[in-house]
């Protein structure tokens, strides 16, 4: 069994890097886009709010697997042909953006109206109110679900193997295809996913402590 694992490690290492790349891209892009759209959903003009609301509800209503297949096999019909990696990242990102939008909306909504009013009363403009009063407090509410969502993204990235992207999951399956011994490799895969996510959860707890300025 040790021998099998040693044999498999180089293959898995490459897959592992792909998994990290997919997860990293999805998380970073969805964070930037999701925060922008989330702020638009809360403060934007009505047409923007409607558009974001419809986008978010639609995406969240579709199983992620369907979304992945739709982007990869469906979009070519309208002339958008993406390779497997790009399609997988796009689909997972759309899904994650919709989640981030909701986290942002919830985080901002949880700040009492009196905070914005006190900020107005000392003469802060809209942008300054967000930057110095609303966002620092909303961040605290936003982080726990978001970091949870990051671990979801790492786990969910395994779905890209279905499009033939050689991520950790796909690499595991390839090795099993050669050695015909599934159990040790799936165990190893589980351990690797677990370690990554355990590290992320620890980070999350550290962040939460750092932002725990409000005594409750």
């Amino acid at each position: 069994m040790i021998g099998q694992i040693l044999y498999a490690l180089p293959f898995l290492w490459h897959g592992f890097l792909i998994t990290l790349a997919v997860s990293g891209l999805v998380v970073v892009i969805s964070l930037v886009v999701g925060v922008a759209l989330g702020v638009g959903l809360v403060y934007g003009p009505l047409p923007l709010r409607l558009a974001v609301r419809i986008f978010s509800d639609t995406i969240r209503g579709i199983p992620i697997l369907v979304l992945i297949f739709f982007v990869y096999y469906g979009l070519p019909a309208i002339g958008l042909q993406l390779d497997a990696f790009a399609a997988a990242v796009l689909a997972l990102t759309l899904f994650k953006v919709a989640q981030v939008v909701e986290y942002v909306r919830g985080a901002i909504a949880s700040i009492p109206a009196g905070q914005a009013e006190a900020a107005k009363a000392i003469g802060l403009t809209f942008a300054a109110r967000l930057r110095y009063v609303i966002f620092p407090q909303a961040t605290r509410r936003f982080l726990p679900p978001f970091v949870n969502g990051v671990t979801d993204a790492v786990k969910g990235s395994a779905l890209v193997s279905l499009l033939g992207v050689t991520d950790l999951m796909h690499a595991i399956n390839q090795v099993i295809g050669r050695t015909y011994d599934a159990l040790p490799l799936y165990l190893l895969g589980a351990v690797i996913y677990f370690l990554v996510n355990y590290a992320l959860s620890s980070l999350s707890r550290r962040l939460e402590r750092r932002y725990a300025f409000i005594r409750e």
Partner: peptide
């Protein structure tokens, strides 16, 4: 914002900024 800056307001529910110290609350504006 400029007009509001010249009009101080104190609220029933205080509405201090919880993430800032007392001094930082005063300093922000």
């Amino acid at each position: 914002a400029g007009i509001r800056a010249d009009t101080g307001m104190v609220f029933q529910s205080f509405n201090l900024f919880p993430h800032l110290t007392a001094a930082e609350n005063v300093m922000l504006g």
